Simulated scan of single mutants.
Amino acid sequence: MTTKTTDLCDEFGDKAKVFAPLFKDLGGKADMAGRAVTVKCFEDNSRIKELSAEAGDGRILVVDGGGSDRCALLGDVIALDLVKNGWGGVLIYGYVRDAAVLRGLPIAIKALGASPRKSVKRSEGQVGIALTFAGQTVIDGDQLYGDDDGVVILNKPLA
């Protein structure tokens, strides 16, 4: 049974922080729940690629790409690694590519949209820092829940 974001908002009120409804469901699932792993990067997905090779343990990769539409920060290769390594989902304040492949993968991927251009690799970006986008701040380790209705942050997991 998945935890519905609407139920979380009803139960926790303002303690359930809701991202602005900017994100499209681009993966094969809409539902996700797990601890946030935060990444800040701009048009460089080097840190995302590195994290995709680690064991995900159901965690949610939360990426602040600055909302740039000039390139995609995630494509089919990285998404397949995330699935293979047990990540619970991805929330990207930015764009993805290989949308047709992503729709067929058993992982929730929420992003602003799709763009065909790949990112550059400069080994830039920060992992584990607080991110602010879409009206909310998410801290590494926060609990995220997402579904068809949106994405909610709680500061700690449900009991």
Rank of each mutant, 00 (worst) to 15 (best):
G104I: 01
A33T: 01
V63Y: 08
R70P: 00
I48C: 03
C41T: 15
D69I: 02
I109T: 11
T137D: 03
F23K: 13
L73G: 15
D140Q: 04
I107Y: 08
K17L: 09
G113R: 03
D142L: 06
A134M: 02
D44E: 13
G27C: 05
G141W: 08
K84A: 15
R117T: 14
Y145C: 11
G104R: 04
V101T: 14
T132C: 12
K17S: 06
A55M: 11
R47Q: 14
L73H: 10
K118F: 07
A79C: 12
G86L: 10
V127C: 02
D44H: 07
A99V: 15
E50S: 12
D44T: 15
V127N: 00
G28M: 04
K15P: 01
V37F: 05
I139L: 14
A111T: 03
M32Y: 02
G128Q: 02
A33Q: 13
R117W: 00
A33N: 13
L74P: 10
G94C: 03
I78K: 01
S119M: 14
I129G: 07
L102M: 10
S115V: 15
I139Q: 09
V77H: 09
F42W: 13
A159I: 04
D7S: 04
Q136W: 00
K156G: 04
G125D: 10
E50H: 07
K15S: 05
A159H: 08
V39S: 04
S68N: 11
L105E: 12
A108Q: 00
G67F: 11
K49A: 07
V151D: 06
V138G: 07
K49T: 15
G13R: 08
P106T: 02
T132L: 06
E54N: 10
A36L: 09
K29H: 11
I92K: 05
K15A: 10
A72M: 09
L8E: 01
A36V: 01
L26R: 07
D76T: 09
F133G: 00
L74C: 09
I60H: 04
K24P: 03
E43P: 04
E124D: 14
